[in-house]
Amino acid sequence: MATKAVCVLKGDGPVQGIINFEQKESNGPVKVWGSIKGLTEGLHGFHVHEFGDNTAGCTSAGPHFNPLSRKHGGPKDEERHVGDLGNVTADKDGVADVSIEDSVISLSGDHCIIGRTLVVHEKADDLGKGGNEESTKTGNAGSRLACGVIGIAQ
């Protein structure tokens, strides 16, 4: 089992970053940390998408990683996509320092995120509470600013 993974985020604009993942036990939580720069100040949706395909930019990554066919939600919700990591918060300089621990994603097994795409979005994720159909699919997080395929790390 891989215990570490990394993702280099890039987009068409100024947004870029490096996100690290570490899972010490196969059924334990995954620590997610790193930094994203070039964002507007505020909240930005942060999700693992189904495919590791960036051939047409971030759009070819498909929908959120959702092997259990659930509705979109927040990272602490029972009803959520596996890939729903909530929001990252950018400061006035456009930098989001990421520090998350998640017990639904994994670096092995059915919820493995390796080979899938991590995406940072234009807007805040409403965590499935926006009151419309799009909220239950995407959290109304808007366009995909930057993305990268999650790969095994040393």
Score class of each variant (00 low, 15 high):
135 S>E: 02
144 R>T: 02
70 R>L: 15
122 E>N: 10
81 H>P: 03
41 E>G: 13
51 F>V: 01
145 L>M: 12
13 G>E: 06
99 S>E: 11
40 T>N: 12
135 S>W: 02
95 V>W: 09
93 D>V: 10
37 K>V: 11
50 E>A: 12
79 E>R: 12
83 G>F: 03
27 N>R: 05
117 T>P: 01
32 V>M: 14
87 N>D: 06
123 K>P: 00
108 S>Q: 15
106 S>C: 07
119 V>L: 05
10 K>D: 13
60 S>L: 04
4 K>W: 04
150 I>C: 08
128 G>A: 06
26 S>L: 07
120 V>K: 01
59 T>G: 06
82 V>Q: 13
59 T>E: 03
125 D>I: 00
57 G>V: 00
133 E>G: 13
120 V>D: 00
18 I>K: 14
111 H>A: 14
17 G>P: 01
89 T>I: 10
60 S>I: 01
102 D>W: 07
123 K>D: 14
24 K>F: 13
128 G>M: 03
143 S>M: 14
142 G>F: 06
143 S>T: 13
3 T>P: 05
47 H>Q: 03
30 V>A: 08
112 C>A: 15
143 S>A: 06
74 G>Q: 14
53 D>S: 03
115 G>W: 03
35 S>T: 14
2 A>Q: 12
17 G>V: 00
110 D>L: 06
17 G>M: 04
129 K>I: 06
149 V>H: 03
66 N>S: 13
80 R>N: 05
7 C>S: 14
88 V>L: 12
43 L>V: 09
12 D>A: 11
116 R>N: 00
146 A>V: 04
85 L>G: 04
131 G>M: 14
84 D>A: 01
108 S>W: 11
27 N>S: 15
127 L>W: 06
76 K>Y: 12
143 S>K: 04
90 A>H: 04
69 S>E: 03
8 V>R: 06
133 E>V: 08
86 G>A: 08
134 E>S: 06
68 L>Q: 11
122 E>K: 09
127 L>H: 05
132 N>Y: 06
93 D>H: 10
40 T>H: 12
30 V>D: 02
139 G>C: 01
94 G>K: 11
128 G>C: 07
71 K>M: 14
138 T>D: 01
122 E>S: 10
18 I>T: 13
101 E>C: 07
59 T>F: 04
96 A>Y: 03
151 G>R: 01
125 D>N: 03
46 F>D: 01
99 S>Y: 09
114 I>Q: 06
82 V>Y: 15
50 E>T: 08
24 K>Y: 08
14 P>V: 09
